[in-house]
């Protein structure tokens, strides 16, 4: 290979690397509603036939405690309750797969540590807002979940908004029960 060209190539690679790690700026449009936000809104919202805001908020706090969350902050005047919980994030399937891969690469004579990249723990954040509907006859309750997942070597491996319908279903089922229990003063 021609030597000057070799250096030139090295120089460009180094310069590119420097450019990339340089100044990261925020991408445009991250405050625009993403596609399908109306469906998500529907998934996250339920209506309850009551106008008693306080009753709903205390039922919400109760249901969050039922689900093992600790309350972080609340503002009754706005119907907000925010809570979080730490939970186990290990999945047997993921670990089994990683161990198998590690063993295979050990047999093959190379080192790999996929097990360290397995999920270990997570923090789930929830925030619930209760507010009167437009006609003022019902209460709208909306919940959103978010989670941060750590792997076995204690690095953040994933951050995401939770959009699983099942999770929301479960939350609102428990909330209906909680509202019933509070009404019966149990």
């Amino acid at each position: 290979m021609n030597k000057p060209f070799y250096y030139l190539k090295q120089f460009f690679v180094a310069f590119l690397c420097l450019g990339i790690i340089g100044c990261v700026s925020a991408p445009a449009g991250f405050l625009k509603p993403s596609e399908g936000y109306l469906e998500r809104r529907q998934l996250q919202t339920r209506q309850y036939d009551t106008t008693n805001e306080e009753q709903i908020v205390s039922a919400v706090a109760g249901v969050l405690q039922d689900l093992g969350f600790t309350l972080d902050d609340s503002e009754t005047k706005l119907g907000l309750v925010s809570a979080s919980k730490k939970a186990d994030a290990t999945s047997k399937g993921q670990i089994a797969g990683a161990v198998l891969l590690d063993m295979l690469s050990a047999v093959g004579g190379s080192y790999s540590n996929n097990t360290a990249r397995c999920d270990k723990s997570q923090i789930i954040k929830a925030s619930v807002i209760a507010r009167p509907s437009l006609d003022g006859k019902k209460m709208m309750v909306r919940v959103t979940f978010q989670r941060i997942v750590w792997n076995m070597s204690n690095q953040i491996s994933r951050v995401e908004t939770i959009n699983e319908p099942l999770m929301y279903q479960k939350f609102f089922d428990s909330l209906s029960k909680s509202i019933f229990l509070e009404a019966q003063k149990i």
Partner: peptide
């Protein structure tokens, strides 16, 4: 206004952490 701000932020995938009326 504040409740609309909250619901708009939720539409944008925000999880509300704190609020003070």
């Amino acid at each position: 206004m504040m409740q609309t701000v909250i619901s708009t932020m939720q539409d944008l995938d925000f999880v509300i952490e704190k609020a003070d009326f």
